[in-house]
Amino acid sequence: MSEIATPYIASKTTLKRSAEDLRSQIPGWGADLDPADRPSYPRENPGIETGAHWDFPERQPEKWPRERSVEHAFLPPVFGTSTPPAGVSGAVRKHAYKYSEGRAAHWLLLIAADRIDAWEHHLRSFASLRPDNPVTETGVLSEFSRGGLRSRFGQKRADVNHQWIDPIIVGGPWALAAGALAAVAFRTLRKRRRA
């Protein structure tokens, strides 16, 4: 490096390793030096062969009113059919799709609906044969079998400072719900005893 750092003068400092060094030390070095060998160059390649044998695809049947972005001219011909909107979260989602993707309301409503959806399902699961189990579903037991402590401490990890929030996000609402339930039970018991 020169006495005057690179950006203050015209010439660029020469690299430590020459092209010959690099070619001999690194497998494949320079194989794609020519942009023409790079598959996504240029970005657009009009008329690229894709395998499609239609101008516009046939339309997949719409088995329930499929929510769609108002920025679409019509319902696209093919779409996913996972988990149709249902319940309160479904109503919020349908409402969210009234706003374009350019509006914060669209995304904030969808995020809110996601939280409602999770609670609708947790509650419903308690009336089912397979209630949600926060221990098995979070996979948290792998902390013991896969070195939870060893992986985190004595390392220089930057994410340990917020990982303590995760159990609160996951467990907090469960603890609150359990607390509320206990409080209600306690009060009803007390009332009964007084009566």
């Binding site: 996504s40 690229i48 894709t50 695809p57 499929r66 679409h72 696209p76």
Partner: peptide
């Protein structure tokens, strides 16, 4: 889809026919 405005130019990840 392989046939929309974007796919036919190689922008497969930006297809317009598959995401309502």
């Amino acid at each position: 889809c392989g046939s929309c405005y974007f796919c036919s130019r190689g922008l497969y990840s930006n297809c317009h026919n598959v995401n309502p």
